[in-house]
Amino acid sequence: MKTTYKNVFRDGPISSSFIAQSIAKHQSKTRIGAHNIFLGQVRADMIDGNEVVAIDYSAYEEMANKKFHEIRETTFKKFNLTCMHIYHSLGMVKSGEICLFVFVSSPRRKEVFKALEYVVETMKAEAPVFGKEIFEDQSHQWKINS
């Protein structure tokens, strides 16, 4: 039987209103004392005089959603978290727009600092997401995480 995992992908950029609504939804969870949020933003890198104007994201979605699920499970085991949300863009995200939104919450602050770094670093290393950097002259190159 094929297992389906929660889909972390969203078409296009992640809007500030989506992020704000996500924060507002936590007001009823009154055991939480600390949130920590990571927002990945598309950077207008200048490469050989050509500026990156957007990144076109694609992914091996089935495997990536499985990896994100495993990262969630491991993170909940390692840290005392109340909840965690991860969203990643697919398709075109212009420079200055948000492509990654990671949101962790806990009763106490120290856990969320450690947990957020763990989630972001593990996700960058293990999730099969690919980024085509589009330049202003419409040429492109493939991004590689450093």
């Binding site: 990945g40 990654l100 972001v120 099969p128 997401v129 995480n145």
Partner: peptide, 10 residues
């Protein structure tokens, strides 16, 4: 079977 280039998420 999938053939995957370097990852670039985030």
């Amino acid at each position: 079977i999938a053939i995957l280039p370097p990852f670039a998420g985030g």
